[in-house]
Design a binder for these strands. Structure first.
Length: 1005
RNA sequence: GCUGAAGUGGUGGAAUCGGUAGACACGUUGGACUUAAAAUCCAAUGUCCAUUAGGACGUGCGGGUUCAAGUCCCGCCUUCAGUACCA
């Protein structure tokens, strides 16, 4: 009987679904284990072979943990809000909900055919109102919370209100807007409700704030940094300006320190922790206040800066403000106004990315104003410069040119003095920033001190003056939480007199309204501005038509939607109790499952999703909704499977001047439009323009094709080959192109209909006289590169078990590696061999024969290795181990059920279908997933002798079989008297003989 | 620039503790079976020299430690990823 993988796989997939084999119970005596994949965005293109890599790895681990006696939660769902569906809706008018539904169907079918052990009864979709109801609820909780820096956690806003009522806000230590006014308890009580709300808003963990965004007037929308290329929009190439907009923000900065400290408690890779640390960007230093020198008539200003080097304060020779800094317009003297305004305008045009990319150019303008040095009282000129970023620190720096390279370059460029405050250091060429070897000089009371001492003293002196204090600064900025898009969670928010009001939990979810178009409105409002029914009635607590808006009970609803990361910041809790209608998850479920034990996903989420999730989890813990501080205990980033693209090389032509082009004639050029040279010519002939001989040859060919008598008309023609992607389906293993296939492919239309290919022999290909070889390049798999490989066809041709094994066999999970479909025959052949080991021509080959010593040795060697590999996520080496085991057992002609049955359990996490089938053929009634993992017995691996490598001066010359229990002396005797040793030594006496029992013998001579 | 990861046959990769480098596969070559093909099976396969026996060289490059280095140390080079005028 042969291995009919299609039938077997369909049979067991059906069995698992019908018997709910992988349904996890929220009540169990077994220990729990939670294995989670980063849930996919269901894109229209479906899955390619790269997508399941992480899912296969996590599935192996989940199945392994079940064999090991754990109650395993292994769910799956969809991150189904997002831009591509919205983009598609804009183009086609199709509702994103419909396309999303379609895409999910495809994903589900594709996932099912790979045989994952997901508990689909817990599926979540972020775009499902029953799910986003709870996303809205969490948003409300964030709104109703503030961060108490004294207790170092988030608290309900009521505790803040009572503080205000009893003591005002002077001594409230909260994470909030820095420029908040100070008021007493009495004043608080006197404030109008609106004023109180306005103040509270600045303390809430989610708040409304003016934020700078990339606004594209032509598209009427806000663009992400990614959507801007070279300063213009990626779509359409429209100009983009920086504009302030009122948006919802999340006060993640309140959690900066805890997010940093928490990294110590979780099992993530160093590189990932490093990314998060950099992103949080903690720096310790001091804040210093510089007073701006003013004439008596003017209002007094001061500039606050942050510095990591307060010890260098006597080296300050100027200050630099970001061009966007609030003070700039206030302090600039009339004579400099024009220059300053021009500079501000110029920088506003440049995107943040542009500004950062251009490090070389030094630019800035003097404001004409001066600040006073806190100690020396000397005047310090105040400049503006775009190397200072408005978004970091206070948007202003005290410039110490002798100690900071950027300040140094700026000073040099504008001829500002560079005072040296370092003992015995030459600063004529560059700044000196080595903290370790710092000895401060020319600095009054800091003279002679090292970095540490001087820093401490400087801070102390600043505090005495009331012009500074020690401070820790974080790079982490609050996260903008509004999106001017349609396909996202609506906010449960309506506005009364411009102040946001939360809708009560009882009336959630607030469902996305219908709109007739998914574009911004003509007045530049988000797409929800197009909804007719999008107002809130406080009497009926329902969404009603906008036309009814009045000032008594019907109010406008928020027009923004939430960003993509809203739904993905807490979904791992919803899986614990996915259908709960009363709570986001029950207390019992949360207590039982705690958090994710193993999380697998791509490294692209290192600073987005993984940071926001940690933030929300910490918040939810503070408020008592959950008991864990971190969402993901262990995290592994799977690498990417890359595609092997194929290129053809089309000739294109350039002309030094338009007359040449005219002279040749459009008709003639048309004939030369579709000519392709092969890869070898493209590469080996070098630059066509310099390889005169080849160019001449090629032009003669072109002349023939164009029907010219000779190539003289083409004399001035410049030829440039362009590399163009073609579908990998039309290329065989030898890189030869299927020209007919390409020409008749509907997707390329007429592109290749008249194509002329010049083959390997240098002649035009007609019929089968020659072949055309494509170029190859390993790149990310993507539809546009025509290099995607679909798992459907792999499952059809080789089966899911082969796909699973092969994806693991390709290499280490974390690594990037190219896909090559040809290689799958190796693991497929292995499965056939395995099948033959169990099932012969006339039925089962397995019987009750006693296992031989060799059988047991092979089995236990395999148990040990496979267990170690799974625990260490080294799945690729397990596959080799299985191959070796089957090769050995086949050679041993093993038929013993005592050996072959446990072997199936070892294999079942990797190749579950064939394992289930053989398991049941061996007479088992229960699914193999319920079987216990075989126990390793070291006694079967004890060897009586070892084949020692005998080395001379470290070089292995021959091997010798020596009993394991032999003494060193006896080993030496045997080795030294061996004829090959004598031959090697040629009469010399060895200086030293090293014998490591069980390992090696090395003779040094 | 900084941070992190990685450089091993024609290819993917193995060697997890300093101890026989190249496991296991793909590919290639030869052979068996077959009318033929597919499938299957067998053998060879790091490079170079040698008829063989065998030898030399070999884990990005240059040094070092060691009886012994892909593995440890020092200095470079290259690739990939993240991040960046962070005060």
């Amino acid at each position: 009987m042969n291995y009919h993988f299609n039938d077997i796989e369909a049979k067991w997939q059906k069995y698992w679904a019908e018997n709910k084999t992988f349904k996890a119970e929220n009540n169990s005596n077994k220990p729990k284990y939670y294995v989670l994949d980063m849930f996919p965005y269901p894109s229209g293109a479906g899955l390619h072979v790269g997508h399941p890599l992480g899912y296969i790895a996590s599935d192996i681990y989940a199945r392994y943990k079940r064999h090991k006696g754990f109650n395993v939660l292994h769910p799956q769902g969809y991150d189904s809000f997002g831009l591509p569906a919205e983009q598609y809706a804009i183009q086609t008018g199709q509702h994103p909900a419909l396309t999303t539904e379609e895409n999910i169907k495809t994903y589900r079918r594709q996932l099912d055919q790979i045989g994952f052990s997901f508990d689909w009864s817990r599926e979540v979709r972020t775009s499902d109102p029953n799910y986003y109801k709870w996303t809205q609820w969490i948003f409300i909780q964030l709104f109703e919370s503030w961060y108490n820096k004294d207790t170092n956690k988030a608290e309900h806003i009521d505790t803040l209100i009572s503080k205000f009522a009893s003591e005002g806000n002077a001594n409230v230590n909260a994470a909030c807007d820095e420029h908040i006014e100070v008021f007493s308890a009495e004043a608080w009580k006197e404030f109008s409700t609106e004023k109180q709300q306005d103040i509270l808003l600045q303390y809430r963990l989610t708040y409304l704030a003016e934020t700078e965004v990339n606004w594209c007037p032509a598209l009427g929308t806000v663009l992400a940094n990614d959507e801007i290329v070279n300063g213009v929009s990626e779509r359409g190439g429209h100009s983009v300006i920086r504009k302030k907009m009122t948006q919802w923000s999340m006060r993640i900065s309140a959690y900066a320190e805890r997010l940093l400290q928490g990294l110590e408690t979780i099992d993530w890779t160093d590189s990932l922790k490093e990314s998060q640390k950099n992103w949080i960007g903690k720096s310790v230093g001091a804040s210093v206040t510089f007073n701006v020198l003013s004439k008596d008539s003017e209002q007094a200003h001061s500039i606050e800066v942050f510095t990591t080097r307060p010890d260098t304060i006597f080296g300050v020779s100027f200050m630099t403000l970001a061009p966007e800094h609030d003070l700039v317009t206030k302090i600039t003297i009339p004579e400099q106004k024009e220059a300053v305004d021009a500079y501000i305008q110029a920088t506003a045009k440049r995107s943040e990315r542009d500004r950062m990319a251009d490090v070389k150019t030094i630019s800035g303008v003097f404001t004409g104003a001066y600040a006073e040095h806190p100690f020396s009282k000397e005047p310090i000129p105040i400049w503006i410069g775009d190397y200072v970023l408005a978004g970091y620190g206070t948007g202003a720096v005290m410039s110490v040119p002798c100690g900071d390279q950027r300040d140094y370059d700026f000073a040099k460029h504008f001829n500002i003095p560079i005072p040296n405050i370092f003992e015995g250091v030459d600063i004529s060429k560059e700044a000196f920033s080595d903290k370790e070897n710092t000895v401060i000089a020319n600095s009054d009371f800091l003279n002679g001190m090292n970095y540490k001492k001087a820093t401490k003293r400087a801070i102390f002196e600043l505090e005495q003056l009331g012009q500074g204090e020690g401070k820790t600064n974080y790079r982490l900025r609050d996260a903008v939480f509004s999106r001017q898009r349609y396909w996202g969670e609506p906010f449960p928010v309506y506005y009364v007199n411009g102040l946001p009001q939360m809708i009560d939990k009882a009336h959630l979810p607030i469902r996305l309204p219908e709109v007739e178009k998914y574009l911004p409105t003509e007045t530049g409002e988000p797409p929800l501005g197009r909804a007719d029914v999008w107002a809130w009635c406080t009497e009926t607590n329902t969404v009603v038509a906008n036309s009814k808006i009045n000032n008594t009970s019907i109010f406008p609803l928020e027009l923004n939607t939430m960003p993509g990361w809203a739904g993905s910041s807490w979904y791992f809790f919803r899986y614990m109790d996915a259908s709960n209608e009363q709570e986001f998850a029950s207390e019992d479920a949360l207590k039982y499952w705690e958090n994710v034990d193993l999380y697998i996903g791509g490294s692209e989420h290192a600073t987005g999703h993984l940071l926001y999730s940690r933030f929300w989890v910490k918040f939810m813990k503070d408020r008592g909704f959950i008991q864990v501080e971190e969402p993901f205990k262990k995290l592994i980033n799977q690498g990417m499977i890359l595609g092997t693209s194929a290129y053809v090389y089309r000739l294109s032509y350039m002309f030094a001047n338009p007359r040449e082009e005219e002279a040749l004639g459009a008709k003639l050029l048309k004939k030369l439009e579709h000519i392709y040279i092969s890869h070898s010519e493209f590469i080996s002939k070098g630059d066509l323009q310099t390889n005169k001989n080849y160019l001449k040859e090629l032009k003669e060919k072109l002349a023939k094709i164009a029907g010219l008598a000779d190539a003289s008309d083409l004399e001035n023609l410049m030829i440039v080959p362009l590399a163009i992607h073609v579908k990998v389906q039309y290329v065989n293993a030898s890189d030869e192109l299927d020209i007919e296939g390409l020409k008749t492919d509907g997707e390329f239309g007429e592109d290749y209909k008249d194509a002329i290919f010049i083959g390997e022999n240098g002649d035009i290909i007609q019929g089968n006289n020659d072949v055309y070889k494509v170029g190859r390049e390993v790149e990310k798999m993507s539809k546009s590169k025509y290099n995607v490989v679909n798992p459907d066809s792999i499952c059809q041709d080789y089966g899911a078990d082969s796909l699973r094994l092969y994806e693991m066999f390709l290499g280490p999970l974390e690594q990037y590696k190219p896909w090559n479909t040809a290689g799958i025959s190796g693991v497929h052949g292995f499965l056939k061999k395995l099948w033959k080991l169990y099932v012969g021509e006339n039925g089962l080959n397995v019987n009750d024969a006693e296992p031989t010593k060799d059988n047991l040795k092979t089995l236990h060697k395999t148990i040990k290795k496979v267990e170690e590999d799974i625990e260490g996520f080294s799945f690729n080496t397990s596959v080799s181990t299985f191959m070796i085991a089957v090769n050995e057992l086949t050679a041993q002609k093993c038929t013993s059920k005592q050996v072959l049955e446990p072997l199936l359990v070892l294999l079942s996490p990797y190749a579950p279908h064939i394992s289930e089938e053989l398991w049941s053929q061996l007479g088992n009634k229960e699914s193999i997933s319920t079987a216990a993992f075989p126990v390793f017995d070291a006694s079967h691996l004890v060897e009586s002798s070892k084949n020692y490598p005998i080395s001379f001066n470290g070089k292995m010359r021959f091997t010798l079989e020596i009993p394991m229990d032999m003494s060193k002396e006896d080993i030496e005797k045997i080795v030294m008297s061996h004829e090959k040793t004598i031959e090697q030594l040629q009469g010399r006496t060895p200086k030293k003989i090293i014998i490591v029992p069980g390992k090696i013998v090395n003779i040094v001579g």
